[in-house]
Design a protein around this nucleic acid. Structure first.
Lengths: 207, 207
DNA sequence: ATAATTTACTTAACGGTGTAAAGTTAAGGA
DNA sequence: TCCTTAACTTTACACCGTTAAGTAAATTAT
């Protein structure tokens, strides 16, 4: 029994090494510019070995996609203790942008890359972390609404809209479309824009 | 003279055919999944002929990028006649989403794709159309501010933020990240979200 | 009119890609 | 000891972007 568990552990280890190498290369060079051969070389195995552990390149993508959402949830976790839902919502926005800026390539992989979303079935356990992250936002907004904020708006549509706002900022920054705004330092722009989103939400509720 | 102008015209025609074929294929299969060979086959020339007209694949990208902004400006043009700047701003938001939904792949190419932004130098004439589009937004917001809206906000930062909001919606839709919102028809979601952005702006100014 | 040059294009090739099939080697169980 | 299975590699296919060299026709020069 111990011998087969050792084998299994070793398999799991190699699987982990592949993921680790893949993640590092994706972060460094991006998804498209990283080849299976690159990953294989990094872990000192033949390229085809990787296919014994993952169906294809997209399969590796899916796993890192899942890990990405787990990390995002780590950014969100402390915010669960913010009792005021409206303050929590604004904190979520800030945390989201921070996550995106600190993990640009991972963010790219999670939210921008053109990869087969069909292979990520939201009803499967793979999607648990992603589902949790979105639910956290929807619940927070739901609480806001029951406290009188955003009256008459549909929680899910609003959640998607708020998400869109911060995603817009993050993705323009990551895909380098900020250079049109000539007068400003690019790195500050995302931060300033996300602060502005929060200020816009604030002004909605002041009379 | 007539003979050399005919030659030049023919060269221009072939250049146009390459762009046309490339655009159609990009729309159909996306940028990454379209090869120079595909384009060549479509116009019934050898792949290398394309290199006589364009430096590389990115060069074709740049030209279509420019055409894309010209088309976006066509969506914006009628809005110049909306005299109230605040109404114009909301109309810009709507028009932007309409443009994105009606020209998904072109939008992708303009705002999402990972292509060498460095080769698009904003100080060159290539960028004229892009510059015009962003200036239209900034000017509209500038007018809003002088009419008392968005008091104390920086026009360019706000322009970028508003742009981010609608871009976020468009890009999540185009890159298929909307499926997390289970309860709603996906096609409606972008429309609903952009309406909500306008409503949020509206509520900012009601007491 | 003929020779030289230029233009417009093609063929062939290089080094890369994702991935599948077949082959190899070593360990485990009967 | 024989056989099966697991883990991995070699080889190969069909694609990719791009370059260098070659070709055939049209234009220009002598």
């Amino acid at each position: 029994m111990t011998i087969s568990t050792r084998k299994e552990r070793q398999k799991e280890e190699l699987r982990g090494k592949i993921l680790h190498a893949a993640k590092e290369l994706f972060m460094q060079k991006g998804f498209e510019d990283t080849s299976i051969r690159n990953i294989a070389e990094k872990i000192e195995y033949s390229p085809t070995t990787i296919y014994l552990y993952f169906k294809d390149k997209d399969d590796i993508f899916c796993e890192l996609h899942r890990e990405g959402f787990a990390l995002l949830n780590q950014y969100f976790r402390p915010l669960a203790h913010v009792s005021d839902p409206y303050e929590r919502l604004k904190a979520i926005n800030k945390a989201y942008i921070t996550f995106a800026m600190e993990n640009g390539e991972l963010y790219d992989l999670m939210f921008i890359i053109n990869a087969p979303m069909k292979s990520i079935k939201k009803d499967e356990s793979d999607w648990e972390e992603g589902s949790r992250a979105f639910a956290f936002l929807v619940n927070t907004i739901q609480e806001c609404i029951s406290k009188g904020y955003f009256s008459g708006m549909q929680p899910e549509v609003l959640a998607f809209t708020v998400w869109s706002m911060v995603h817009g900022i993050a993705s323009l920054e990551i895909r380098n479309r900020c250079s049109v705004v000539e007068s400003l330092n690019e790195k500050d722009l995302a931060r300033k824009a996300s602060d502005l989103v929060n200020e816009i939400l604030d002004r909605m509720h002041r009379e």
